[in-house]
């Protein structure tokens, strides 16, 4: 049963990570991020007890809320880079397909290295890391960079939960996730402001 849930979570991770790459509406992005953390919770449950796994989803949702609340207070801005080739949706979908293919190929090998974390856990983790890196590579927008970094970290945390169960690590990773969301919010506000201070 747990394995079935894990594979459902992998499907959810695939949808959310590709969705994050394609969507241009920040509301969708934040919703997909929140869903991604729910899937992450299911995958972390494979190795961690419920209490500790809950830390991931709570910290993740709090981060999504921080980013969402900040973005909702800012004026709507559209970046020209989003429409220009080769960064359009077809290109992103194509690049996401390549990442997915690479993940399928390397999952068995990485699963062996990672103390048999489980195919579902390894695949979801690599998928998130790959899509997050792809996201970071094709954008310079603050919100998207933050989402990309959070996606990469989410992928890493899933994989790391299979080999490390320390409370301190869980707490520090939660702090880092929240810190990243706060820094992202800070930079979002800053990027929306007029230049009033000279170097």
């Amino acid at each position: 049963m747990a394995v079935t849930f894990a594979w459902i979570a992998v499907g959810a991770v695939l949808i959310t990570s590709i969705g994050l790459l394609l969507t241009r509406d920040w509301r969708w992005s934040i919703s997909l991020l929140a869903l991604q953390y729910l899937a992450m919770f299911v995958l972390v449950l494979q190795h961690w007890p419920l209490g500790m796994a809950s830390v991931k989803v709570v910290a993740g949702w709090m981060s999504a809320v921080i980013l969402g609340m900040t973005r909702s207070g800012l004026s709507p801005t559209e970046s020209a880079e989003e429409d220009s080739l080769p960064r359009g949706r077809p290109f992103r979908l194509f690049a996401a397909g390549i990442v997915a293919l690479i993940v399928i190929v390397v999952t068995p090998g990485v699963d062996t290295i990672m103390a048999d974390a489980g195919f579902a856990v390894t695949a979801a983790s690599l998928l998130l890391i790959g899509m997050g890196l792809l996201h970071l590579g094709i954008t310079a927008q603050v919100l998207r960079v933050t989402l990309g970094l959070m996606t990469v970290l989410a992928g890493f945390e899933i994989l790391y939960s299979a080999v490390e169960g320390s409370v301190l690590v869980a707490a520090l990773l939660a702090v880092i996730n929240l810190g990243l969301a706060l820094v992202g919010s800070y930079l979002l506000i800053a990027s929306n402001s007029e230049e009033t201070e000279s170097i």
């Binding site: 310079a140 990027s191 230049e195 009033t196």
Partner: peptide, 12 residues
């Protein structure tokens, strides 16, 4: 960075 100035590429 400053809250009153857009962050540059270097910070990101």
């Amino acid at each position: 960075t400053s809250i009153r100035k857009p962050p540059g590429r270097g910070v990101l």
